[in-house]
């Protein structure tokens, strides 16, 4: 009966929401961005330390639901060492995964745990918040990004 629910809240997601990785402010950050979900009042601050075009280190802070926190945590692991162009491509593929349940062009690794979100349209924004903030940080956008 709760297959959908177990798909949404996979053990990996619960684990990352309870013990988020890279959950810290980066003193050496060269780029930062704020993400905001006005629907629930959730906020995320994202810190990037760039080495040229490549993300050398990344951290985040903020409050959010299990989905948004786990998404931010898994994002930080997935984008470390990636170039801006690679992250933009991942953004599109993660968006496909969250809205359609699948994505073309090979496996997204650990991020595949978010495939169950597509059955809960109201929660797509929670999972996308950190990705929006990452793109904003990479683009050097000063204004906080919003899911709305």
């Amino acid at each position: 009966m709760f297959d959908d629910l177990n798909d949404l809240y996979q053990q990996v997601i619960i684990d990352h929401s309870k013990s988020p990785r890279n959950f810290r402010r980066l003193e050496a950050a060269t780029r930062t961005a704020q993400g905001h979900n006005p629907l629930c009042g959730d906020n995320i601050a994202l810190y990037l330390e760039m080495d040229g075009d490549v993300i050398k280190d990344i951290g985040f802070q903020g409050s959010g639901c299990a989905i948004s926190k786990a998404s931010a945590s898994l994002l930080t692991e997935a984008v470390k060492g990636r170039s801006k162009a690679e992250v933009k491509q991942m953004f599109e593929r993660v968006h496909d995964l969250l809205t359609k349940g699948q994505t073309s062009g090979g496996d997204l690794g650990k991020l595949e745990v978010f495939a169950g979100v597509h059955k809960f349209p109201a929660r797509v924004k929670c999972a996308m918040l950190a990705w929006h903030a990452t793109l904003a940080a990479l683009d050097g956008q000063d204004q906080p990004v919003s899911t709305e």
Partner: peptide, 19 residues
């Protein structure tokens, strides 16, 4: 988080609000 409570409650047919 309130939104997680509301999502799971909905799977049990209980309509709440979170936010």
């Amino acid at each position: 988080h309130a939104h997680d409570v509301v999502t799971v409650a909905d799977q049990f047919g209980v309509a709440l609000r979170g936010g």
